[in-house]
Design a protein around this nucleic acid. Structure first.
Lengths: 378, 378
DNA sequence: TTGTACGCGTTATCAC
DNA sequence: GTGATAACGCGTACAA
């Protein structure tokens, strides 16, 4: 009986192989499995598996045979099967508003570089500044069994319950850039207060007092911190704060129209502001673009300063004064923290909020021809 | 005996639940499975499975019970298990050289928009213009059971065997931008010949004759086609072609240094070229950057034209004349083709090479102050 | 109408 | 030193 079975096996094997052949003709990609090797060599799958993992209990001879065969058949372990078994996918999910944004594409490069060296796969999704899309992305990534998540929320996100939900269930999450204090986890951000304070002081030192801001929605952490820095600089300089100088962009300037409206409203003010401060990459560039198209002279008629990580700002005319964030490094740190979270055996309870410094790069756009110029820091 | 077993089951169940509790405390993310629902309700997993899929054979009552329980327990199907079973992951892999490049980030947006609406996940990898990295990425994505691949090869890629290997094994692949004629599959590209021809003609019509090119390695499809267009324009205008005016950048200008060297070599030529034509996004911007830092007046001393999809080129000083590619649309088309390939029951044998038109946007950088200006089509 | 058994690819455990 | 078996989560053919 046992012998008969041994005869039956090759028959099945042939069938199997025939099936794969047909599938190949049907253009279906079928990977070589450990089973194929086992059949080819007349071994059991467990032996093959152990040989491949270089287990001590397998004879050198068998190992050699298996390895040779695996090489010949181009065997690649199926990570899907491994994920199912090990309950981990060695992949991390990323949610950002938009990758076509210098800050985020640089951050993703940082994320990827660390993930890559640690053997993790990166799955990137974009919220396009939509809360609903962010929720979908999150559900999608979590259900796809990513081992952890790196998130910078959308401009619409006020409520963090969707993130808390997964975090509470034990999914490792690191927040960066646009963060939330209520979620007990690692966070990576920059000193937004200081960055905005310095930028505003730079303008004030240049003789400007009516400084307008184009900003993201007020509920975002970065908006709050940056506005606070701006206000502090005004207060320290004895300048009254005015709500009318703050223009909010619901969608974070993801479509230029919103920024254009904001800039136009600012230009219609009487008296006009002497400077525009863009509180994020898209907003800065969008504001500059609008001014150029309206042929407003920068910095003569109105100065421009703002957050931006674009490589091209120094080549603009006038060259743009920017606050540059260490985006790549932020991505690196966030990923290191996330992986340590993923790989730690026990739940961690002390979380680090990493606050990095920004760099104020003073160029032409923020310096009035006749104004006193005095660089503040950096 | 059977009865005893029935008693044993709840015991195991309790154990199971206890285990999950512990795991949760250990911060390990454990998803709710169909099994949990089955246990909770005293049903079999298959009944639950069928109820969830709204099978006709399940009573309305049971369905309601199951659905309610699934909702309460926050059940989400495990796509890893599904992938293993269905041998498809509903995800597509993308390989590009760099996402922090306007052309590619726009293309990825196009890819993502189509994939998203069709229920596909997008996994993005970057080759960083390295052939080895591209091979690793490819292996990685293929082994991770992506259902298909969208690829623009690295600047180092001369040999396409690594791609052919998977393609021959039946993995659906669509090539875009930097393509290869030897692989029988769908391709999406632009009319590079025409684009380069028009750009060169534009310069020639502006009175320039010594037109230098900064280009990617000569083995890339886009390089060949663009150089051919350039040469044709020269030939049509009775201008001799000279090798000395063509500067190759092995790494596609991914690091600025390479482009800087190339530009400096061109500037050292005697006589100097009257114009520089950047044959890809990074090269164009890199060349412009180098000229600015060397304080060479553009276009007076040397004109600049080139491929670029950056949003900021119109704001540069001088504003940059560019050839703009329909990147988003290219991504969309590539993805549609790929998904149709993935979902077609039978192997397709007629492949489409989609060739889209580019747009020449004439701005200041390519127009000599005293030159005759004549726009050559859009 | 519901339950049982199997298979997807892999590895750990136990048996020989 | 090697093989058989169970398990991961799910869907489904088959059995009841």
């Amino acid at each position: 009986m046992t012998q008969r079975c041994l005869i039956v096996v090759p028959t099945l094997s042939t069938k199997q192989i025939a099936k794969k052949q047909v599938d190949r003709n049907l253009m279906k990609f079928e990977a070589v499995t450990i089973k194929d090797i086992a059949k080819e060599l007349g071994l059991s799958t467990s032996t093959v598996s152990r040989a491949l993992r270089d287990s001590y209990e397998i004879s050198a001879e068998t190992k050699k045979l298996v390895l040779e065969c695996a090489e010949r058949l181009q065997y690649r372990p199926n990570p899907i099967a491994l994920s199912l078994k090990e309950k981990r996918s060695r992949s991390i999910g990323v949610i950002v508003c938009e990758i076509a944004n210098s800050f985020f594409s640089q951050a993703i490069n940082g994320i990827e570089s660390v993930a890559y060296t640690q053997g993790y796969n990166v799955i990137i999704t974009q919220s396009h500044e939509s809360f609903d899309r962010e929720v979908t992305d999150l559900d999608f990534l979590a259900s796809r069994s990513v081992d952890g998540l790196i998130i910078s929320v959308s401009s619409e996100t006020q409520d963090f319950e969707h993130i808390k939900k997964f975090h509470n269930r034990g999914l490792p999450i690191v927040l960066f850039d646009r963060i939330n204090e209520d979620i007990a986890t690692h966070k990576v951000t920059v000193n937004n207060f200081k960055a905005a304070f310095e930028a505003t002081m730079h303008l004030i030192n240049g003789g400007m007092r009516r400084i307008a801001c184009i900003v993201n929605p007020s509920h975002l952490s970065i908006t709050k911190e940056r506005i606070a820095g701006y206000k502090q600089a005004l207060a320290d300089s004895g300048i009254d704060y005015s709500d009318s100088l703050i223009k909010y962009c619901t969608k974070g300037g993801i479509n230029g129209a919103e920024v254009e409206v904001a800039v136009n409203e600012l230009l219609d003010l009487n008296p006009r502001p002497e400077a525009i401060f863009g509180l994020s990459d898209k907003l800065t560039v969008g504001a500059f673009k609008t001014l150029q198209s309206r042929k407003i002279k920068v910095p003569d008629e109105i100065a421009v300063i703002g957050f931006s990580n674009s490589e091209l700002t120094e080549l603009l005319s006038p060259s743009l004064t920017v606050i540059r964030q260490p985006a790549f490094q932020m991505g690196e740190i966030a990923t290191q923290r996330l992986i340590s979270l993923i790989e730690s055996k026990r739940p961690s309870h002390d979380f680090i909020k990493e606050v990095l410094d920004t760099e104020l790069i003073v160029r032409q756009s923020s310096v009035k021809p006749l104004g006193r110029v005095k660089s503040s820091g950096v």
